[in-house]
Design a protein around this nucleic acid. Structure first.
Lengths: 146, 146
DNA sequence: CCTATATCGATGCGATTGCAACGATATCGC
DNA sequence: GCGATATCGTTGCAATCGCATCGATATAGG
């Protein structure tokens, strides 16, 4: 047998693809409309802030794992962000293969500038559609697909 | 106020991004591993079959709307698929700007060849994680983000 | 210690995507 | 009917992604 999946799970998958594509496009459009960089830059800056709050330096490898990003992709994303003056690369103290990524003052400022726009977009394009219980249900179900 | 969205909806959004990215990557890997073309090709071929079943010809514009795909992107996707002999372009009878997209015999065969692999991947990477009620709940919630 | 293997990050190159603009045709408003 | 505007699909070009590979360093096994 070809193992036809349940109709419900096909519907869920199709809905997942479309929801992500459509919502991401709307959020990116809001950021772009405000003259801000793409969402991926925010994700990087947010991870960097989390690390700073925990008084840790973040290795590129760890950033890669946190963002589910291919290594070569992250290398070049950081090229662009470093070019824009938002992050700096420093050698990892105890592993000479490694690079620590640190935010610059401008990088921290950029994250603060992006958040209000991102938050507004999130409320408008996601939060608006769910009450608290629904949002939790949705998050819980989606977690299983990690 | 910056209008912080509810914590639940932020969690739902993050989970949505990760679930889609991770699951899509797994499914694409299964298709690629079976020597088959990307998922987008299947989506096109499926829409074409739907149209044929309804005895309708499908305009490129309608395909674009059905797939939530940018026009220029679809143009070139169809270039590749036509190059592979899977679809053909024909002038729309009543609108000389338009192009009808029709599947070739090879295109229909390719869809039939892709489905078992896709179905297996879907069962493995999506269906496995949900019972019928959960899948329906998930689909229903995600529909709201269209 | 010293070779074999694994990990970390970068890079050359071809494929794909996104943006802006275009040519062709259709539709609208006068 | 006719000029202004909108729609359909394509294309040039730059940015980004994905794959394969590389150089450098670290770790494991004998």
């Amino acid at each position: 047998m070809t193992g036809s999946p349940t109709p419900g799970s096909v519907a869920a998958w199709v809905a997942l693809m479309r929801a992500q594509t459509a919502t991401l496009a709307r959020i990116e459009a809001d950021l772009d409309g405000a003259g801000l960089p793409p969402l991926a830059w925010y994700d990087v800056l947010l991870e960097l802030r989390r690390a700073e709050r925990a008084s840790k330096r973040l290795r590129q490898r760890d950033l890669q794992a946190a963002l589910l990003l291919a290594g070569y992709n992250l290398s070049r994303l950081l090229d662009r962000m470093a070019g824009a003056g938002l992050v700096a690369r420093e050698p990892t103290p105890d592993d000479r293969r490694g690079i620590d990524i640190v935010p610059t003052a401008e990088g921290r400022a950029m994250r603060r500038r992006m958040w209000p726009v991102y938050a507004r977009a999130l409320g408008h394009h996601v939060g608006r559609h769910f009450d608290a219980a629904e949002a939790t249900t949705l998050a819980t179900l989606l977690e299983r697909l990690r």
